[in-house]
Design a protein around this nucleic acid. Structure first.
Length: 871
RNA sequence: GGGCGCGUAGCUCAGUGGGAGAGCGCUCGCUUCACACGCGAGAGGUCGCUGGUUCGAAACCAGCCGCGCCCACCA
């Protein structure tokens, strides 16, 4: 070790992540470790496609958790020597990005219509080059070992080709079609959106009851509505066919107030006779239910509300041009004047809102492109049923299947400019429609001019092909051959349908296989108070702030440790625990690295690259002392357990177990026990410590890559970066049950001795004379508990297990008696409990033999101690 | 309306048939030559409620109370 490095080690008593992280990350990039060759087969390789963040996005806590999970598995598999690719890129995010640029234009006093489509799109590209993809840099702060040389974008040239290929493929198979149909119109983004982008919220409205006079009669039909303005587009009144009250009216007509239109009274099962008066106004143009009823009965579809949210001419002269809200006020006023409103009541119901813009959805009939999903869904259902795609935790499998079985057509067109313009061309001369992957020059039928469809595709249409489009599909690239299907996907459950299900469908249909083997649905990290983390609520916690304050390793450890199958609140304590762990790793390593003494020949031996040296210099570990046998055994047990936890996506327990092995067993016990041997320059313990350090650093590296890499740079066995060092494999031959039992006994005794001292108020530094009754104890027992066991003479004043404490002036007799009394009370109650249990015939007869045996042994132990103390 | 999940120490969460756990916080004692972001010792819980199954229930079953999320076209 160079003098300067040694000096650094000696002087830095605190680990400083800020100083280390950027430097280490640059080293990894320079090493090219994250950029694998496109070689080998997907079964042997390991690959992950990152859920592409929006170009407009900034790293939020969901990304940070998702990234920590992926990086843990990616790093573990890379260390295992698998050819590992973590592909990243960004999503063009149609609505969100267009909105950002439109806002900028507004600030300049302009808008997209001023610019025109071409100039606007160019402007968005410029914005993207300048401000987009900052999130990619933020992933680097987290330490994410993505292949930054293979970054993709859903609108890059190759990707657009893939999207068009898929569109045409689906069109040719008859799945994609154009239809005049009711859609969710988002007045905020001036576009149709899909069912999945709609969220229902509880809203209090007024429920108006309106009397519709029956033609040639003095009767009225009273209908109820929360949207009286839609009456202007009513084309029928419906009643339940079995409703006797209205049986005679079916086939007759009402007269629509304010308008005068004749409305047929029709019978439809959908109407609930129990609700209100049992009569329902039908507005096929502006209500999804009424639309269905209208189509069943061949009703006229009147459009009284336009895409701009204003009343059309069809609403009648008095209302044309009013906004929906103004029209509602006007209609209610007019009806009141005519005395046709029979009641008004507050009414709480759920109303659809746009997930994108937050505005209330306006159901409208419009000409849109749809994709039929049922046939695509069938093999995707089977793949999950048969666990070709395994969803964990398993309850999400049912959720996925239920949704897929009820799947409905997907509205894929959006009235935006930013996105994949739909690859359809219309010929105005001969009304031919051409679907093509590349722009055709002229109409094939008549040679006329062609005009491309104005609409773009839903953003999720392009995301749906992410796992194979990013690998170069439809070209037969080496990447596709080496890395598809990918190994696993991790995601929040909110995009299970929006994204995951669609990837499975397109993967099977176009890439010939499922896109990933496992889907891990991770928890949602909530704000500290249990509310949803959101920018608008002001409840967001910025992962970059956390990294600045505590380091990326601390945040990663904290997020993994707080992750769970259920949603959890963000825990500052867990992040702090990670920061403390990083510091403890640094300091325990300092202790080892500054004090080890190595045989020069051993230290210089070249360990073979690509395999874990069983000890420094490639020798074997041959632990002899009880503490060495114990810690080595515990090390291997921990490696086996942590590895298994990571493989089954149980990150919280993996982190917890690695933490407690290192902190409690390695630091609190083993290091304290072997300090004298280490300071003495014993080579054997040096070798063992370096071996333990190497295995511990490698085991923790996938969770906390920076601090472990930094420490590794000081390790004498280092031949290259830890990021590509072999991941430890548990060696069962080093497990040692006897040593574990013996050490547990010693530890237990030390604890009891310390507790005894504390309770009888012995000064912390005092060494007490004692005698041991029975076989010799391990030497470290006396040292760690501060007892001297070789004392001659002196009267025993108390006994703790086999240790008889001898009288000295420091011991307060009264305190000892008090302590003994307290212990006697405990023991009597334990004995009573055990006796009660063993006296229960049912217990002895039915409980497993070893449980009964254990209980007998306990009773025996307690009775013996009780006797000793009572003497 | 249907589905999923949660209610365990002051806080955040583990535990899922055999004597209640972790981290943080709290109390007491330690400037012990890796670390005070540390070391040692403690206090603290009728495991939401009520019934049931069992020799034995925090865990399994039923009901109830409270909370959250997802799906669903009842005006």
């Amino acid at each position: 070790m160079g003098d300067e490095r040694l000096k650094n080690l000696e002087e830095k008593t605190r680990y400083d992540p800020a100083e280390v992280e950027r430097r280490i990350f640059a080293e990894w990039l320079e090493g090219g470790y994250f950029h694998p060759p496109a070689e080998g087969a997907p079964e042997q390789n390991f690959s992950v496609a990152i859920p592409p963040p929006n170009v407009t996005g900034a790293l939020h806590m969901g990304h940070a958790l998702n990234g920590s999970i992926q990086d843990a598995l990616v790093r573990m598999n890379r260390m295992r020597g698998r050819n590992t690719l973590w592909i990243l890129g960004t999503d063009h995010a149609g609505i969100a990005t267009q909105a950002v640029v439109e806002r900028a234009l507004r600030e300049e006093g302009s808008d997209r219509l001023d610019l025109g489509r071409e100039a606007f799109v160019e402007r968005v590209w410029r914005w993207k080059e300048q401000y987009g993809s900052q999130i990619v840099e933020q992933y680097k702060r987290l330490g994410a070992s993505c292949d930054y040389e293979r970054e993709r974008f859903t609108l890059d040239e190759g990707y657009v080709r893939a999207v068009y290929r898929v569109f045409k493929g689906l069109f040719d198979r008859g799945y994609i079609y154009r239809d005049n149909y009711m859609v969710n119109w988002d007045p905020g983004s001036h576009s149709a959106i899909s069912d999945l982008e709609v969220e229902n919220r509880e809203v209090e409205d007024t429920l108006y009851s309106i009397d519709y006079p029956v033609e040639d009669s003095d009767r009225v039909l009273t209908v109820a509505t929360v949207r009286p303005e839609t009456m202007l587009a009513d084309t029928a009144v419906a009643v339940n066919p079995d409703d006797e009250r209205y049986a005679d009216l079916i086939g007759r007509h009402c007269v629509l107030p304010l308008v005068g239109r004749r409305l047929p009274v029709i019978a439809d099962e959908h109407v609930d006779p129990e609700f209100g008066t049992g009569a329902l106004k039908i507005t096929p143009g502006h209500d999804p239910n009424d639309f269905q009823i209208g189509r069943r009965h061949g009703l006229e579809e009147i459009v009284a509300i336009g895409p701009d949210g204003r009343m059309t001419e069809a609403a009648g002269e008095r209302f044309t041009g009013l906004t929906v809200a103004e029209a509602q006020t006007a209609v209610v006023a007019a009806l009141r004047e005519e005395g046709l409103i029979s009641s008004e009541e507050p009414y709480i119901h759920s109303v659809p809102f746009s997930h994108r813009s937050g505005e209330r959805i306006e159901p409208l009939i419009s000409l849109q492109w749809f994709c039929r999903m049922d046939e695509l869904a069938r093999p995707a259902i089977e793949a999950v049923e048969r666990d070709q795609v395994r969803i964990v935790p398993p309850q999400w499998k049912r959720v996925y299947l239920d949704w897929m079985e009820e799947i409905r057509p997907w509205c894929i067109s959006r009235q935006l400019w930013w996105g994949h313009r739909i690859p359809v061309w219309y010929c105005d001369s001969c009304s031919e429609t051409i679907v093509a992957e590349r722009e055709p020059s002229r109409c094939g039928a008549c040679g006329g001019e062609l005009r491309q469809e104005e609409d773009v595709l839903d953003t999720w249409f392009s995301s749906a092909i992410w796992p194979f489009a990013t690998l170069g599909w439809p070209e037969e690239t080496p990447e596709l051959a080496a890395f598809y299907p990918t190994s696993f996907l991790t995601t929040a459950r909110e995009i299970l349908f929006l994204w995951v299900a669609r990837m499975i469908m397109t993967g099977i249909e176009f890439a010939g296989d499922v896109p990933f083997r496992d889907v891990y649905v991770h928890a949602v990290i909530q704000a500290r108070d249990g509310r949803r983390m959101s920018k608008s609520l002001g409840t967001g916690i910025d992962p970059l702030d956390e990294i600045d304050q505590h380091g990326a390793d601390a945040l990663r450890f904290g997020l993994l440790a707080m992750s769970s199958t259920q949603d959890v609140r963000f825990s500052d304590a867990k992040v702090q625990q990670g920061a403390d762990l990083a510091n403890k790793l640094w300091n325990a390593s300092r202790l080892i690295l500054m004090n080890v003494k190595l045989d020069q020949n051993q230290a210089d031996t070249n360990a073979p690259q690509g395999q874990v040296p069983a000890a420094v210099g490639g020798g074997t570990i041959n632990p002899v002392t009880i503490e060495d046998r114990w810690i080595v055994s515990r090390m291997e047990a921990t490696i086996a357990s942590v590895t298994a936890k990571l493989e089954e996506y149980d990150f919280a327990h993996a982190a917890q177990e690695a933490y407690s092995f290192f902190w409690s067993e390695l630091c609190d016990w083993y290091l304290e026990i072997v300090k004298p041997r280490l300071y003495d320059g014993e080579e054997k313990v040096s070798a063992t410590l370096l071996w333990l350090l190497e295995r511990t650093l490698a085991l923790i590296h996938p969770l906390m890559p920076f601090v472990t890499e930094e420490i590794w740079s000081y390790h004498p066995a280092r031949r290259g970066h830890l990021a590509v060092h072999p991941f430890p494999e548990a060696d069962d031959s080093l497990r040692d049950a006897e040593a574990e039992t013996d050490m547990n006994d010693s530890i237990e005794l030390i604890r009891r001795l310390r507790a005894w001292r504390d309770l009888v108020d012995i000064p912390a530094a005092a060494v007490l004379p004692a005698r041991v009754d029975g076989p010799d104890l391990e030497a470290f027992v006396g040292r760690l508990a501060r007892f001297s066991f070789d004392a001659d003479g002196g009267e025993p004043v108390a006994s703790v297990g086999p240790v008889q404490v001898l009288a000295t002036g420091q011991i307060d007799g009264a305190a000892v008696r008090e302590r003994v009394e307290a212990r006697l009370v405990d023991l009597r109650s334990e004995v009573a409990r055990a006796e009660g249990k063993l006296d229960n015939d049912g217990f002895v007869a039915n409980a497993p033999a070893e449980v009964v045996e254990e209980e007998r042994a306990k009773l025996e132990r307690y009775r013996r101690e009780l006797e000793e103390l009572s003497e």
